[in-house]
Computed example of a mutant assay.
Amino acid sequence: MGVKLEVFRMLLYLSFPVTMFWVSNQAAYFEEHVVRRKREIFPPDDAERRREMREFKERLRKMHEEKVLRASRD
C-alpha cells in the first residue's frame, strides 16, 4: 500500500503544475486574455488620438514655458 500511495501522490504533485503550464500556454487562452488586454491598454493608433496627443503636448509645453517665465521674473 505504501508504494502505491507514494506513486499516486507523486503523480498528483506533478500533474498539477504540468496541467497548469499546459493550460496557460494554449494559443486560444493567450489570444483571448493577454492580447485583448494589451489592446485595451494600448489601443491601435488613429488620427484622432494623434491629434489629441499633439494638443496635450502643446498645452504642457506652454504651461512649462509660462512657469519658467514666472520663475525668471521673480
Rank of each mutant, 00 (worst) to 15 (best):
M1Q: 08
G2W: 01
K4R: 02
E6Q: 08
V7S: 08
F8T: 04
F8P: 00
F8R: 02
F8K: 03
R9W: 09
M10L: 11
L11P: 00
L11C: 09
Y13N: 09
Y13W: 12
L14S: 10
S15D: 01
F16P: 00
V18C: 05
V18L: 10
V18R: 01
V18W: 04
F21R: 02
F21V: 09
F21G: 05
W22P: 00
W22T: 06
V23I: 15
V23R: 05
S24N: 09
N25T: 13
Q26D: 07
Q26G: 03
A27E: 15
A27R: 13
A28C: 05
F30C: 12
E31N: 15
E32C: 02
E32Q: 05
V34R: 03
V34S: 07
V34K: 03
V34L: 15
V35R: 07
R36D: 05
R37S: 15
K38N: 13
R39H: 14
P44F: 09
D45G: 03
D46Q: 09
A47E: 15
E48H: 06
R51Y: 09
E52H: 09
M53V: 13
M53T: 13
R54D: 14
R54P: 00
E55Y: 00
E55R: 01
F56R: 02
F56M: 03
F56K: 02
K57V: 08
E58K: 10
R61F: 11
K62W: 12
K62P: 00
K62C: 08
K62A: 15
H64G: 01
H64S: 04
H64Y: 05
E66T: 09
E66V: 07
E66W: 11
E66M: 11
V68P: 01
L69S: 07
L69Y: 06
L69V: 05
R70Q: 12
S72E: 07
S72Q: 05
R73T: 15
D74R: 15
